[in-house]
Structure formats: structure tokens, C-alpha cells
Design a protein around this nucleic acid. Sequence first.
RNA 1: GGGCACUUAGCUCAGUUGGUUAGAGCGUUGCGCUCACAUCGCAGAGGUCAGAGGUUCAAGUCCUCUAGUGCCCACCA
Length: 903
Amino acid sequence: MNELPKAYSPHEVEDRIYKSWEEKGYFHASPNPDKKPYSIVIPPPNITGILHMGHALNNTIQDILIRFKRMQGFETEWMPGTDHAGIATQNVVERSLAKEGIKRQDLGREKFIEEVWKWKEQYGSTIIKQLKKLGCSCDWERTRFTMDEGLSEAVLEVFIRLYEKGLIYKGNYIINWCPRCQTALSDEESQHKDVEGMLYYIKYQIKTPDKRLKTIEHVVVATTRPETMLGDVAVAVNPKDKRYKNLKDKTLILPLLNRELKVIFDPIVDLKFGTGALKVTPAHDPVDFELGSRHDLEKINVMNPDATINSIGGEYEGMDRFEAREAILEDLKERGLFIKSEPHRHAVGHCYRCHTMIEPRLSPQWFVKMKPLAKPAIEVVKKGKIKFYPVRWTKVYLDWMNSIRDWCISRQIWWGHRIPVYYCKNCSETGILKSKVRIQNSKFEKGIIVSKIKPEKCPICGSTEIEQDPDVLDTWFSSWLWPFSTFGWPKSEPELKYFYPTDSLVTAQEIIFFWVARMVMAGMEFMGDIPFKNVYIHGTVRDIAGTKMSKSLGNIIDPLDMVEKYGTDALRFSIISITAQGQDVFLAEGKFELGRNFANKIWNASRFILMNLKPDEVDVSLCTFFKAMKLSLSEKWILSRFYSTLKIVTTCLGEYRFNEAANSIYEFFWHEFCDWYIEIAKSTINEKTSQVILYKILEKSLRMLHPFMPFVTEEIWQKLPHEKDHVGDSIMVQPWPHLQKEMISSHAESEMGKLIEIIISIRNMRSVWNVEPILEINAVIKSHKKDKKLIFDNADIIKRLAKISDLSIGMLAKPKNAAVSIVGAVEVYVPLEGVIDIEKERTRLEKEAAGFENEIKRFRKRLKDKNFTSKAPKGVVEKQKERKAELQLRIKKLKANLKDIWA
RNA sequence: GGGCACUUAGCUCAGUUGGUUAGAGCGUUGCGCUCACAUCGCAGAGGUCAGAGGUUCAAGUCCUCUAGUGCCCACCA
């Protein structure tokens, strides 16, 4: 007989089991005409990241889904992978080079990229390997990386297709510039944070003051960024603003630089803000840029890439933007042009990688036109082809899609997919090429050649002076292709056909815009179909104070530490059972005890069953057994409870309600199977029926639990006897338990409920009257015919679980000096000679009666109400009547007993 | 400025179309190492479901408002 060790030690078990799964090839999936596909793609973690609780939650959910579907007989593909995280990775490698005193510029582009690849080989797959520690059953053979050959090919293909369609263009616009990373960022990569800033009021003199109107000799403008005044070209006011009517045709003088400024009138200017006069800096502010374009103003860029002032700034050249701000304010004060400053709270963009304040900056960048791509992506969600769980994210998605703006995709860094654009120096200089000329697999326009590979010479002028665009693409420009590029697109691989569209996408809300929305657009554009059917958005993992967990705050609970301390199954079960659908999770370390204790309970219950199991007895089909054998109430009850639970769990998993599923299993296994059934079965453990029920419930429960706690269930399952052709197999490839509806019996459940209540009531009386636990006592149960059979049939159970030596049943009188409990229509007496304190017992019963009295009032009132009896559904009225009758009976009995005690 | 979520036991949170007595884990009180499990068992205490109004025979659940908390989005310089 296989026996389990006394204690479960996860570390001994987990690695061994994981390896065995890998060796058997259970994780790998490929197109299989006999099975339906079910596929998930992992939200690729970034190669510089460390595994945190968010990943643990995210991947636990995915693994539960994939294991569940695998057991349900689907061909399940869970594709793992990582993204190259252009800016983050470049920063990391630059920092490590800096320790050796090397700058990336010292190495040059090629050498530097080599260094990054080296770094990637060494550290880049750490995070994904750690997923194995979480038990994730990913198809490792298909692990993908956004810079892989295949995925890179997809990126180039997509760039070219969009360019040919006119959806990619290069333009000089205001973009989000990170002065530290020295690159452009997309709008999504600029995170708005509230900043306590200042609003400065500055005088701009009028060049030729109108002598008749002495009052107006200058205009006061308000700004939060005085340093940008170096690039001012105008002052704008609202045409409706009466204060500034006289400024028409006037010219102003820019302080410090003495440049002449136009006055322009535009409705975009808010009359109520500041002084109603807006200084216009087209090269450093999006609104000003718009004004500049509308009014044909010069765009003067006053900053270098690192946000220091350039030569246009005259004496301020070389100063950092904040230094320049101070210096300029000082100089303005000296000249009496500074009026005042006031505190001003406003939202300012920050780099999502290094948190440096974004500088809006005019620069030539590549963009994707988003409106045409958004249109089908809006349609499919509106039509419900893609569903969000919870549904509220649908609105968030649609709102963003509807107000989408063009996507800046070029980055001024080295690590990433280099933009497949080449410039012919000759043609661009001469401006020969104005019309679109197509050459093989590429595009040619105004000296621009778009091509997957570098052309040897210019196809128009033959010049060999061809240079590739130095920029690389936004990392998300490769991630948005993930659901199909990972399956081999643009080639039409069988995998792509079979597994696309994927089924579920499980991710956090933070990347809905970055990733989810863009994947839908890419899927529709390049595959002509949705990339996934369901999007499950789970909550953010926070610490107990509600702060998002982050390394810099030091409030991280490392999942690997928790695995070390409590075991993988404990981590998984704990986190899943405390995470309500889509709700944020507040974690404290103690919460993992829940899962650890549960794993321990499963282990010990299994150990007990195995210790007593006779394998020959249990080699039967539960179905035929159920029909052939006469089962006792407790046996019918536990089967019914198991299948009721299975029903709930199956439904919940299909609706992404993981915590409800987990909690149902927990409740069933611990508080029904262990606390009651196993205790009851102990006295009949050698009998066939007990053997079969114990074994079947355990074996099926393990299968039901497996997606949640893969290791402990596998370890135990391996020790259970199985039919011959199952030996050696793994629980992870067993079928999900089949729902036997005929075994669900509400009658058995309610009858057993009565029995449990009776036992609890006796235990309660024992506890209240301090009866020694070991001491066996007598009890009398007064009962009508209806319940008499139930109690009589199960007298042994009552006697054993309530420690009763002699149990009398029937229409019996209350013994002298007995404690009383009313359970439904049944009275339970425990004679306690010399122990009972009459007064105390009286108080106890009176209190109980008062509670019933209160409750009964509500029913009386409700049942009197004709509206209720006529309008409420039948079942409800009847149930309430029953309840009322029951309560009345109880009170009657309590009163009778009170009298007795009193007398 | 716009949007979303949250407020239920001492703490952390569940509560699916409104319908019997509002649940769990932790903590707490009393008793117990009964040969599966002290990472345990048994019994208990503890809640005017944030506040106010409304719809309904019936509201923790639906609607409106108020207060507090958190998050996301946003070109008032």
C-alpha cells in the first residue's frame, strides 16, 4: 500500500513533479483535428522585470484556466514569452556599463547592441523561468521573444503594410520627450501626475504703446514654464475678450531676448485662466503648436535633447531647464517685468520608465494613423465579439478608442526593431522624387525607401549613399502583434490557423491601452479577425495599506519567498481565493497561511484515507455503485454536496469567478467532507460503501482541485490506486469530473442538515454546562414521526459525534434537570443531574425565545399583507409560512420548557 | 474637468438575475494534544450592511442625493 509521509513538504515534491510533467511533454500542444483548441497567450513580461505578486496572480489565473480546459479535453496552448522593453533594457545595460566607466556612445551602436544581447542571454529569461516555480503549464517549446527572427519579420511586414496603406507617416509634431532617456514617448508612456507648481505672471511690453490709451502699455501673461518664453513667437487672446480689444495690430516685445511678438486672436484661449493672455511657444507646447499652425507662426526650439537651453537662448545657453527658469525669473524681477507668482496644482507628464518630467518638444517622428484602425476594433467590442470581464472595462476601452490619437512609434534609442526606412542622400537633397515609386517589397517616396533589407543603391538615382533611419520602434509596436506573430505570421503556419483567435486574455488594467486595445486593432487589420474572445481584467496587487507594490517603495512581498515559505500551492490557492473578480487585492504575508493550512488539510485527510484504504474494494464505477447499493443518508449527502460543488466550480471557472470557485471547494472539502463525512465514516471505515465513497470523493476532489493546487493534488493522486490503464499517468491529463446530476439531492442535504443541527445542539449544551469532553452522557430526543426515522436511523452517528452513551428517541417527556435545545420540530434534552443552574438555563432559554419572537413578528406582519401573499411567487410565500410555523413551534416548546424549569 | 470603483463583524474581505435566520479567513473567549491533521478539533461572542430619501408585497442587493476613500483619463497655459 502506498502511504504518504506524515507531513507534506512542498519543496521536495514540486520540482520533481514539475520535471516529470515536462518530460512527459504534457505542456506542449499542436494542431489536433480531434480536439477543440483552447489557447492563451501570456502577457509578455519585460525582460528587465522581476517576478512580483502581480505576475503571480496573473499567471496563477492563466494556469488555472489552462489546466481546467486541458482536463475538459481541449487542446490547450499557453504560449509564454517576453518583450524586449526597449527603453527599460537599454537603461539597465547602460547602468551596468556605467559601473565600468563605459558610455554607450563609446561602444558605438553595434557593439552596444551586442552587449544588450549578452545581457539578455544572461538575465532576460529569469522572469519567465520563475513561472515554472509557480507551476505554470506553459508550452515552453514555443517560448517567444519580441526580438526573435520571426517576430521581427512580422514587425517589418506590418510597418511596410501600414506605410503602403498611408497609415504610417513621418511628421514634425510636439511629442512627449524624456530628457533623461532622450527619446520620444507615446501618449500612453507619459503618465500624468499632479505637481505642486507655480503660475508666474510676466509683463510683455507693447512695442508702440497707444498714447491715447495710457493704461495699456504692456500685457501680462501667465505661465508655469517661464523658461519656454525663449521660444515665444506670439501672445494669444480670445477674440471675445474685451480687455484686449486694443491689442489688434499691435506688436509686443519679448522680454530678455527682445524678439518681436505678434498678437493673435483665437477662441482656444480661456478667458478665465490667468490673465486671459497666453504666451505662444509653438515648439514646446501642444496647444501653442496648434496655434502656431493655425496662425502660421515660426516654431522656435530652444532646447537640446537633454533639456538644456540651446544657442537660441543666448546667455541662458547650456543651463538646465529648471536652472534657466530660476535665472530667467531673477532677470525678469531685476527689470521689473515680474509681477507675481502663485501656487498652482496641475498634472504634468512623467516618463513611465524613469519618472523624469516630460518636456513637450517639437521633433520629427514616425506616427501611425489610428482612427482607421480603431474603427473595426470598436465594432467588434460593441457587437460583443470580444467580451470584457468585468464588463465595466468595455466602456473604458470604447472611450479610449473613440478619442484615439495618432501613435508616435519612433524612439531615439538603439535597442529595438530599427525602423525599416532608408534615405537616399542624393534624392532627398535634390528633391527629385516627389511621386510614389514602388520597388520590390518596398516603398519609395521623396528620397525615402521603405524596405525590409537595406537596398544596395538608390533605385532612382543609383546612388549608394543610403542611410537607415537611426530610430527604433516602440516596444509595443511588436507586442501588439503578439497573438499572431507568435504563431508564425506572416507565414500561414498550421498553428496560426488552429489556435487563432485565442480564447482568453488575462491581464491587468494598467495595460488596457498600451496593449489590449492595440492588439485588437492589429488583429483586425492584419488577421481580419479578433485576437481573443474574452478579456479578463484582474485587479492590482497592493500592500495592506493600499499602495501599489513596487520595488522602490520596499513594500514588496516576493512570491518566490512565499513559495519558499509556504509552498507553491499555498501561494496559488491563497491569492486566488482572496481575489474577487476584477477587484484589487490587498496583501499581507499572513494571508498565505490560508492556503498552506488548506494544503495541509488535504494532505492529512488523504493520508488518513490511504491508511485505511483497501484498493480492491474501490475498483468500481461510482455510477453503477450508486444504483446498486443502498446508501446511508450521510453517503447520499456527501455525494450530493460534492456534485453541487462541482457544478458551482465548473460554472464559476467558465465565468472567471475564481475566488468563488476556490471558496466553494474549500468549504466543501474542509467543512463538509473532513469535518463531517470522514468523522462519520470512521466507524464504518472497513465497510465497502465507506471505502468507495471515501475513495471516490477524494479522487474526484483532487481532480477538481488540481487546477488550483497542482502539486499537492498530483503527489497524492499518484499514491492512489487507479485502473490499470491510468497507472503512471498524471492527474493533469485526467478528465475533469463528470457532473452526475442524479446524485444531487436537496432532500438528502436538508435531512443531513437537521442531523448536523441536532449534533451541534448537544455539543453546545455540553459546552455551556462544562461537561468534560471525554465524559459520555445520556440524551433524550423528543420527536414526531416525521423526524423520528431520521434520528433513529442515524442514532449511532449522533451518539458518537456528540459523545452520548444512551439515546432515547420518541414522544418522550423531558427528564428532570435536563438542559434543553429546540431544533426545528425536535426537542433535545440532556439530563445533567446536579450540574444545571436553573436560573442560568432559564435566562439562556428566554434569550433564545426573545430572538425567535422578534423574527416571528416580521413573518406575521408579512403574511398578513395581502400584497405579499398575492404578489410574491408561490415558493416564497410557502417557505415563509413554513418558517413561521417552525418558529411558532419552537417558541411554544421553549415556553413549555421554561415553565418546567420555573416549576 | 470627465469617468470608474469602494464604504458589510475588532482587522482583511465575500455576498451572480431583489426573496427564509447577512457569510468566510484572521483575531478574540472557553474547552480539548480523542491513534489523519495543534498548519488541528469542539463550542461561543461579535454586524442599525457609510448616511438620507425613493421604487417594491419584499432592498446589503435597484434608483437619486450626501459624505469619505482609492484608481484611471484629460492640451486650462
